[in-house]
Design a protein around this nucleic acid. Structure first.
Length: 479
RNA sequence: GGCCCCUUCGUCUAGUGGUCUAGGACAUCUGGUUCUCAUCCAGAAAAUCGCGGGUUCGAAUCCCGCAGGGGUCACCA
């Protein structure tokens, strides 16, 4: 059996979103699973649509996700170059093969004329078929006009690993353009030549190409080459479920997810599961498991809507599975500026504490600011608190004073803090909801924060006590 | 309009003729975990399997129609 070689062939028109990367991921998984090759080929045959910097951006996305490629524009291999714009002579050579066989001809019509035919067909509610207008005597190609393929309409039945058997009729076949008048090939032509020359075994692509497959099959026949194995992955729809995810609307750059602190393993797991599962109830798969379990034949036929909440959940799962040491390394660039002067041990302890409520790393500053900066007193935390607001101010002050006094006598080890405050609970006959909430507010000035004992243990004795003092003063000022 | 593809809880999905009065996960709701938020745990609600016929003792699963959705019909990929 020939080596399995898959490819991802983006055009450099911007960034990659969930949909694009998922298609690439499936191709990558298949290659890895079979010890094959994964190739990146840049389809830059439309100079008008090209966006500056896209290629670097796309390659960076692969690198950041850890989806390594064996050959690509910046990774030469035996079948290069991997930029279509650098392969123009190859396409011309193949085009001439068709010309010499009488299977390609110079387009005799102007753009306007073709457009006229198209409108005419539309008005008559007929499919527009260029071949109906094809002259009997094929015009020669002088390269100032596009080169068209002389199609040979017929029915096709082919097998798609995901979709199964697909049939088409003659109407799906038409004379399409092989080489544009600017000398660049069209996608329809270039990808077929390249996939063949690059010995691609499996072409995995998204659904919008399915309608063109009969045309491709017709061209393979004319070129007398074998088509690769085809697999069509379903589209990914936007959250509204109406249309497929697109850059125009809501789709986000994968690199942005990475920047926000989504872990690459979570992103990969999530994308893999958007349209694939291994027929079990397992939801969390590490990359190795994905490689060994992935099967194209298990890919869903119907399109899936992208629900970011599931991604958020999954990222949380991965954050919790990651050791704090590892997470600390990943989180380096996310700490707030004010944390600069604090030690690694301190930050590590903070991270360990907030880890279980972290959804993505860019939440770190919001969740941790009070560990690094003296928080501003926020009176509403008490006045808006259902229970504390009903308690007499004097009594709150007294509780804080007692807490201050008792805590000041301890060594501030976690166990001791715990015992001391529990004792105070008994002594003052207060419920945790009163005493602990009060101290928590005094020390964090935050509506939500990690558990009290751990929080103040990390904060340390000095800061804890001074913040309680500050709160007492503030309460006294309300008098 | 032609051609092609798709159709199970709000969402991602399991399911390949009987074990399905349809399972899991996300989201939602409720309760528990000495304080808030979260985590975790337990539980609830949530799909008459797009609709209509058929085949069969028996269908989400097979067949036929229909409907809805999507894609495509570029000198874009």
């Amino acid at each position: 059996m020939n080596k399995i070689r898959t490819r991802f062939a983006p055009s450099p028109t911007g960034f990659l979103h969930i949909g694009g990367v998922r298609t690439a991921l499936y191709a990558w998984l298949l290659a890895k699973q079979n010890k094959g090759d994964f190739v990146i080929r840049i389809e830059d045959t439309d100079k008008d649509r090209e966006v500056e910097g896209s290629i670097e951006h796309i390659l960076k996305t692969f690198k950041m996700l850890g989806l390594d490629y064996d050959e690509g524009p910046d990774k030469p291999g035996p079948f290069g170059p991997y930029m279509q714009s650098e392969r123009l002579p190859i396409y011309h050579e193949w085009a001439l093969k068709l010309v010499s066989k009488g299977l390609a001809y110079g387009d005799p019509f102007s753009k306007e004329e073709v457009e006229g035919y198209r409108i005419d067909a539309k008005q008559k509610k007929l499919p527009f078929l260029y071949r109906n207008y094809r002259p009997n005597k094929l015009p020669a190609w002088d390269k100032s006009k596009p080169l068209r393929f002389k199609s040979n309409p017929q029915k096709y039945t082919w097998n798609d690993i995901v979709l199964g058997q697909i049939q088409s009729n003659e109407n799906a076949i038409d004379d399409f353009i092989l080489i544009k008048s600017d000398g660049y090939p069209t996608y329809n032509f270039a990808h077929i030549v390249d996939d063949y020359l690059m010995q691609i075994s499996h072409v995995i692509r998204s659904q919008e190409f399915i309608a063109s497959v009969p045309k491709f099959l017709n061209l393979y026949q004319a070129l007398e080459i074998e088509p690769p194995i085809l697999a069509t992955v379903p589209a990914i729809l936007g959250p509204d479920g109406r249309k497929k995810l697109s850059k125009r609307d809501n789709a986000k750059d994968i690199l942005d997810y990475l920047k926000e602190g989504y872990l690459k393993e979570a992103l990969i797991n999530f994308m893999a599961l958007l349209g694939w599962n291994d027929s079990t109830e397992q939801e969390i798969f590490n990359v190795d498991q994905l490689i060994s379990k992935f099967k194209l034949s298990n890919v869903q036929k119907s399109p899936a809507k992208f629900d970011e909440r599931r991604l958020v959940w999954m990222n949380g799962q991965y954050i919790r599975m990651t050791s704090t040491t590892e997470l600390y390394a990943l989180a380096k660039s996310y700490w707030p500026n004010d944390s600069k002067t604090f030690s690694q041990d301190y930050k590590m302890a903070v991270l360990d504490l907030i880890k279980e409520r972290l959804k993505y790393l860019s939440e770190i500053p919001d969740l941790t600011s009070f560990f690094f900066v003296e928080p501003k007193i926020d009176p509403s935390l008490i006045t808006d608190n259902k229970i504390l607001s009903k308690i007499d101010n004097q009594f709150l002050i007294k509780l804080l004073e007692l807490s201050h006094q008792r805590l000041s006598k301890t060594s501030f080890k976690l166990e001791e803090i715990k015992n001391t405050l529990n004792d105070l609970l008994l002594e003052t006959a207060q419920k945790p909801v009163v005493l602990f909430s009060l101290i928590r507010i005094a020390t964090t000035q935050s509506p939500a924060s990690p558990s009290l004992f751990e929080t103040i243990a990390i904060l340390g004795k000095d800061k804890t006590l001074s913040r309680i003092e500050t709160q007492i003063k503030a309460l006294k000022n309300y008098e």
